[in-house]
Simulated assay, not measured.
Amino acid sequence: MGKLEMVDARQVWPHEAHDFTPWLLANAGTLGDVLGMDLELSAAEHAVGTFALDLIGVDQATGELVIVENQLAPTDHTHLGQLLTYAGGTDAVNVVWIATRFREEHRAALDWLNTRTDEATRFFGVEVGVVRIATSPPAPLLRLVAQPNDWGKSVRAKAQAEGGSSKGQEYQRFWTQMLAELSGRQLDWTRSGKGLVQNWLALPSGTTGITYRCSFGRAGLCSEIFFESPEPAVNDARFAAAEAKRETIEGTYGGPLRFDPLIGKKGCRIADYRAGQIGLTEDWQEYVEWFIACQTRLRTAMTNVFGSLSPMGR
């Protein structure tokens, strides 16, 4: 067996801004795996006032903003100050600090921030290294050294809230059950493993501004593909491209779909529905099966027609 050896990170990424930050931008999934997020990074050197944040993006599973401050060196006070400045300037939910080594004082500072801030603010510390075996290509090694105590935060939030939502807790249990089914069936639709208290579950499509979703609403259960680019013209073009292929999409899907332009709204959708409500816990497994079956058919139909969702319109 070969021996695992550490490699100087500067041999792989000679320059932090010119090499390491672009690598992170192109390999968001690697960082997302460590953080447990469906991470999509959309910009490098994002302006925050007169300063420039290394990376900004979103957790596609929750829609929450993620900012990243990275350095190819041990942590220092300067970068801690920058991290807090950027967090305040962007109002980020998830704040990520990456360094080659975390000094104990700085790791403790992130732990303190996670303890003192509310449940909607999370700080992560990630150590980055490079390894290889003999003459193999170098491989990145990312290790989570600081993370939020979500359990502690949720307990505090529940204790402080008046009349906590039992329905929210039901949604959380249901989505956790469904995510476990996706993992057990090796359906690589999301990296998330923990359900949230909202009535919907977002599943990334691999294309910015397009998301697959499962949700509960007034009409019952909804399985959909949702066009949600911040540019309305992009959504309109993508929806029109799909509507022009409606007969083929529905033929592959195996039934009718509702094409809803959602005039005046922030996006538009193609969806299928069935009766159901979150309170009928005895039907949850049936709901899970329906969501998985419909999402599988919808993904197959869209892929067969377009190959990739990227060419649908920009």
Results as ranks from 00 to 15, higher is better:
R107E: 03
F123S: 00
V126T: 01
V58T: 09
G251W: 06
I67N: 06
Y171F: 12
G163P: 12
N27I: 05
I249S: 10
L110K: 05
F259W: 12
F259E: 03
L262V: 12
L53V: 03
Q198K: 15
T303L: 05
L84F: 04
L84P: 00
E127S: 01
L182F: 05
S166G: 11
D118N: 12
T62K: 10
T176S: 05
V197C: 14
P311H: 00
F123T: 00
G307P: 08
A28M: 03
T100M: 10
R213K: 02
L203Q: 02
H15G: 13
G220K: 00
F306R: 05
T135D: 10
E282M: 10
V145L: 02
T296Q: 07
Q285R: 12
S165G: 03
A159Y: 12
K167M: 07
G88D: 05
R173Y: 12
A159L: 12
E224A: 09
L55V: 04
G29Q: 14
W23N: 11
F102S: 00
Q177I: 10
R213I: 01
P256Q: 04
I270R: 01
T252N: 09
A240M: 13
L83K: 03
L187A: 02
A44D: 03
Q82R: 03
K3S: 15
R101Y: 11
Y253V: 01
M1V: 15
L39P: 09
E250M: 07
S308P: 04
A293W: 09
P14C: 11
L113C: 01
P138F: 02
K3R: 15
S229Q: 05
G267I: 11
K265D: 14
Q285L: 12
E228K: 15
I98R: 03
S205G: 00
A159P: 14
V93K: 14
A43C: 14
A17W: 08
T78N: 14
A120P: 11
L141C: 07
I225N: 00
C268D: 01
W23A: 10
C222M: 11
S165E: 06
L221C: 00
C268G: 02
D59K: 04
G307T: 09
L201A: 02
A139I: 04
T30C: 15
F174H: 02
V95S: 03
E16K: 09
M37E: 03
W175S: 04
D76L: 05
R122D: 04
L4D: 09
S136G: 12
R274H: 08
V66F: 00
S192M: 07
A275T: 13
A275S: 13
G29M: 15
Q11K: 15
L53E: 02
Q82N: 09
L41C: 09
I56T: 08
R269C: 03
D19F: 12
